[in-house]
Amino acid sequence: MNNTILFAKNINKVFGKGKDTVQALSDVTFGLQQGECLAIVGESGSGKSTIANVILGIFPPTSGEITFLNEKLLPERSLMLKKQIQFVQQNPLSALNPKKTIGASIKLALDVHNIGDKSDRGQIIDTLLLEVGLPIEFKHRLPAALSGGQRQRVSIARALACEPKIIVLDEPTSALDVLVQARILNLLNKLRKERGISYIFITHDLAVVRNIANNVCVFNQGKIVEYATTDVIFNNPKQQYTRQLISAIPVIDKSEQILRNKLSEAHNAQF
């Protein structure tokens, strides 16, 4: 664990006061390695979005602590720490300001963190657009002129502009068509390898997880049910809940069917 970049220890999050409280996260502990893609998987209400918000500092945990490169993350984060942990949202339609050009949206990140000389920033924006597979002319366009997949690429470029160590991806492809999803997932994989960034990939889609993540945390009702490598989760899951989740995935080919049947038999055998 010498390459651990982020470590979440015994995180609890309780919403509400007095009688009406909801325990959104209980005793969540996990680590993120440099260059790793860690998937956080769960159904709605599992706490997967809550943990993302806690990591991003949108709200603090009720108890427990997160360390980033051995530095404790406090509720009020410095600009330097904000820069290190960036975010790509689910809905590419709302994530970009409809009244600002693509270039201006990316430039904000450069301006806030004072990256590059002022005169070079146009150049940096061009490089970022090319890196995410968009033509340079797009910087003059408004988001409305882009497709969903192109907008998601802009969101990724904007996150990269901060030169972060970690990107939290919240269902980055679930609003996209399957052909576009494939291309975005490939882009994310490429960027992770080239830049050595770490991802926290939050999703409900286990099939996507299988093809992109190194490790998986399965969340249910605010708890980590199973935390293992992707191979173990899909070939030899220890927990009944994990099997149940995988068994519910609609599949399209025979080898998938065989794997699913194997897991759901194991699932049924538990009863």
């Binding site: 949108i58 904000k82 709302s94 970009l96 904000l108 806030v112």
Partner: peptide, 28 residues
């Protein structure tokens, strides 16, 4: 509630920027 406001907050933009440069143009 829109994602672009959250995005600007996470990047670390100032409140002044978010109010007058992000939100205001959408109210015009």
């Amino acid at each position: 509630q829109e994602g672009y406001v959250l995005a600007a907050e996470i990047i670390g933009a100032s409140k002044f920027h978010i109010i007058f440069r992000e939100i205001l143009p959408n109210c015009w």
